[in-house]
Design a protein around this nucleic acid. Structure first.
Lengths: 204, 204
DNA sequence: TTTTATCCTGCCCTTTTGTTCAGTATTTTT
DNA sequence: AAAAATACTGAACAAAAGGGCAGGATAAAA
């Protein structure tokens, strides 16, 4: 029980191709037919070997239950995040009516274990941070932020990106483009933090 | 036979989840068990409806052979582009030894029907265009460019992003950060256009 | 109201499919 | 050389799984 033999590898590859083509794994007999193995037990031996070597997983007595272990890379790398358009008054951000579309993003670019959404940037107030008009901002949902971080702020139902500078009794939201003056949020104003900036995606 | 009923949708969703979890579709009985349907025929009716409505495909008399049709978006919206590290001398850009990783990108962000790769931006010479150090630049492969476009240029095996300004007997590659002077390429210098900028992805 | 579709039960049948047992020949390890 | 793993045949078995028939109760559409 050392290496994967050529035969075993061929069988493994066939299973892989079969799944790619059919979306479900082949039966023992289908494999046997492909390789001219007349006894189901011949295939069985190969499958047991492949399982011992950690290439596949079989679920006992279940039809078409071969699972490939080594080769998971295909789909797993992309996550789908909702693209938020306008935020309807009184609705949570991720409410269905706010979702304009979904966007595939590589998981490596996202923080794990938190809710994420995307927002289309309007205006050039954040060009100083390399965020241009029309960019998609990836936002990690959270209710609080640290001083200076770039946050997605909800002001009167509109979402904007700004640097967060809180003080005693008011919050200052600063742009990174010198042409814009800070927005001052006083107590009682309609304001909330939707999340903090986790990434930017641009189509040129 | 019009809309998908709530029940049918629930069953469809269960199949979807099951596949996600197990990598292979459930049996008729497994579905029935989940929903408290005691007769396989109860499930069968639902599956026949779902098939009529084009949501699934069943292969007759084959175990675990339900295939989801509508829910292709999960894969279809993402494309995998190679992330190019250093470009080994004399190799084509997409040669395997140059590929550092692969990156999932939403197809909507990519130009169709052309070869695409990604490049990690080194340095801050293009901050004027909102391209920061460490950003991933999405490049559409092509050998020529128009004046002023942002290109990925290969100079002595290294790839850089610059604005392309050709003239009679030399090429000027301009940065968009004022602190950098243009690079002048004379005839005979090792230079080639790898492609033009098609997008930017940043992780904050 | 009549028809059609949905969503079931219950029972039975047939096919599909995984498993097991008893061997055999060959190759690889130890 | 002996032991272990590979790579099968062949037959038989039992469980798993899909399909069919005969309804029934509701709900939705015509």
């Amino acid at each position: 029980m050392k290496k994967v033999t050529a035969r075993q590898h061929a069988i493994y590859n066939y299973i892989k191709e079969f799944i790619l083509l059919n979306k479900f794994p082949p039966t023992v007999r289908e494999i046997g037919e492909k390789f001219g193995i007349k006894s189901t037990n011949g295939v069985r031996d190969a499958l047991i070997s492949l399982e011992k070597k950690g290439l596949i997983k079989k679920f006992s007595r279940q039809a078409r239950s071969i699972e490939l272990l080594q080769s998971a890379p295909s789909i797993a790398t992309a996550a789908h995040v909702p693209l938020i358009g306008r935020i309807a008054a009184g609705t949570p951000i991720l409410a269905e009516e706010n979702v304009e579309d979904t966007l595939a993003v590589d998981k490596a670019l996202l923080p794990r274990s938190s809710q994420i959404f995307a927002l289309r940037v309007q205006g050039d107030s954040m060009t100083g941070d390399g965020i241009l008009n029309g960019d998609l901002a990836i936002i990690r949902m959270q209710k609080n932020a640290e001083r200076g971080q770039i946050i997605a702020a909800i002001i009167d139902g509109d979402a904007t990106l700004k640097h967060y500078y809180p003080s005693e009794n008011r919050i200052e939201l600063r742009a990174s483009n010198g042409a814009y003056s800070p927005i001052i949020i006083d107590e009682g104003d309609s304001f909330s933090i939707a999340g903090i900036l986790a990434g930017v995606i641009r189509k040129c």
